[in-house]
Amino acid sequence: MTDSPTIRPATPADLDTLVDLFRATRKWLAEMGSDQWATNPPERVRGRLADAISRGECYVAEEDGRVIGTITVDDFADPEFWSAEDKPETALYVHRMMVERSAAGRDVGGLLLDYAEAVAAKAGKVWLRLDAWRTNEPLHRYYVRKSFRPVRVINLAHRGSGALFQRTAI
């Protein structure tokens, strides 16, 4: 086993593994009592991941040749969450961060977030932003521990997400 996972851009060959990781993460969330991602079909996630991979916006954490996590980092500021006053163009946004359960507790998520921050800084952005499931308070606490500052909570009846966070990209 290596000392630390490495991060690399995802390739089309990773797509099936990432969809399987999504399915496993969604199942784990349900077992934990969360409805996060419950209505997000794997086929839609496959399409979004494939698009992100083709644009070079999806990254994987890999250890001993095995993918153990993923993160997508792009400039899509969801207009239902981020307003013109937020200056969305000053940030990159995190989507679909997942870590394989066997790697839980080893700060693979922190490594992915730090990598995403470096991508944002290299792009000349001020912020790394994300939205989290409103009811997933352990996830909110996790992001605060990872130096994200709560911005606000947007409560939309048709969306489960809406807890907004950001940290500086330095």
Rank of each mutant, 00 (worst) to 15 (best):
D86N: 14
K87F: 00
T90A: 10
L92Q: 01
Y93I: 00
Y93F: 09
V94I: 13
R96C: 08
R96L: 14
M97Q: 10
M98A: 05
M98R: 04
M98S: 01
V99C: 00
E100I: 00
S102L: 01
R106F: 07
R106E: 10
D107A: 12
V108R: 06
G109Q: 06
G109W: 01
L112M: 09
L113I: 11
L113M: 11
D114F: 05
Y115H: 15
A116K: 01
A118E: 14
A118K: 12
V119R: 15
V119C: 12
V119Q: 11
A120T: 02
A121T: 14
A121H: 14
A121F: 14
A123I: 07
G124C: 03
G124W: 06
G124P: 03
V126H: 02
V126C: 04
W127H: 04
R129V: 04
L130W: 10
D131S: 11
D131E: 15
A132R: 10
A132Y: 09
R134Y: 13
T135G: 13
N136S: 12
N136F: 15
N136E: 14
N136K: 14
N136Q: 13
E137G: 08
P138Q: 13
P138S: 10
P138M: 07
Y142E: 02
Y142D: 03
Y143C: 02
Y143T: 05
Y143F: 15
Y143I: 04
K146D: 00
K146G: 01
S147G: 10
P150Y: 02
P150F: 04
R152N: 09
I154W: 12
L156G: 08
A157T: 12
A157Q: 15
H158I: 04
H158V: 05
R159H: 14
R159E: 15
S161E: 09
S161G: 12
G162R: 08
A163M: 12
A163K: 05
F165L: 12
